[in-house]
Simulated assay, not measured.
Amino acid sequence: MSQDKELKKAIALQYDQEKNQAPVVTAKGQGYIAEEILNRAKAADVPIQEDKSLVEMLAQLNINDRIPEELYQAVAEVFAYIYQIDLEQKKIIKK
């Protein structure tokens, strides 16, 4: 039996302006590992952004690699999305 369903992939990034010049890959995986990364992110209330093409590009990196300069714009958009979600959640909590 062939598998038509593509394995799910996930990449976790972290950015600390004081420690790193660029975001760093902190976890990556596919299938069960990807599901576990997503489950842990959800459990920790870490926002998740789905972008299949970005995941494919980031999957070429190793854990602890900084993202390359050519991906700065795409990753900046993800972090802007996450920042916006954080702001919205803080507004809800303050109400």
Rank of each mutant, 00 (worst) to 15 (best):
S2V: 14
S2N: 15
D4Q: 14
D4S: 15
E6F: 08
E6T: 14
K9C: 08
A10T: 01
A10F: 00
I11H: 06
I11A: 03
A12H: 07
A12T: 07
A12N: 06
A12M: 11
L13F: 03
L13K: 00
L13R: 04
Q14I: 13
Q14R: 15
Q14P: 01
D16E: 14
D16A: 10
K19Q: 11
K19N: 09
N20L: 06
Q21I: 09
A22I: 02
A22G: 08
A22R: 10
V24W: 06
V25L: 05
V25A: 04
V25T: 07
V25D: 02
T26Y: 03
T26D: 01
K28Y: 03
G31L: 10
A34R: 00
A34L: 04
E35I: 07
I37T: 04
L38K: 01
L38Q: 05
L38E: 09
N39H: 08
R40S: 09
R40W: 02
R40I: 08
A41I: 04
A41D: 04
K42D: 11
K42L: 14
K42A: 10
A43K: 13
A43W: 07
A44V: 03
V46Q: 03
V46D: 02
V46P: 08
P47Q: 06
P47R: 00
P47H: 03
P47N: 11
I48V: 14
E50P: 06
D51E: 05
K52L: 00
K52W: 00
S53T: 12
S53L: 13
L54G: 04
L54I: 00
V55K: 02
E56H: 07
M57Q: 09
A59G: 09
A59K: 04
A59S: 15
A59Y: 15
Q60D: 11
L61A: 02
N62L: 01
N62S: 14
N62I: 05
I63N: 04
I63L: 02
N64V: 12
D65Q: 04
R66D: 12
R66Q: 12
P68Q: 03
E69H: 07
E69K: 00
E70H: 12
E70K: 06
Y72V: 10
A76R: 05
E77P: 05
E77I: 07
V78A: 07
F79C: 09
F79K: 10
A80S: 14
A80K: 12
A80T: 11
A80I: 10
Y81M: 08
Y81F: 14
Y81N: 08
I82Q: 11
I82L: 08
Q84A: 14
Q84S: 14
I85L: 10
I85G: 06
D86H: 15
L87N: 13
E88L: 09
E88A: 10
E88R: 06
Q89E: 15
Q89M: 13
K90Q: 08
K90V: 06
K91S: 12
I92S: 14
I93F: 14
K94N: 13
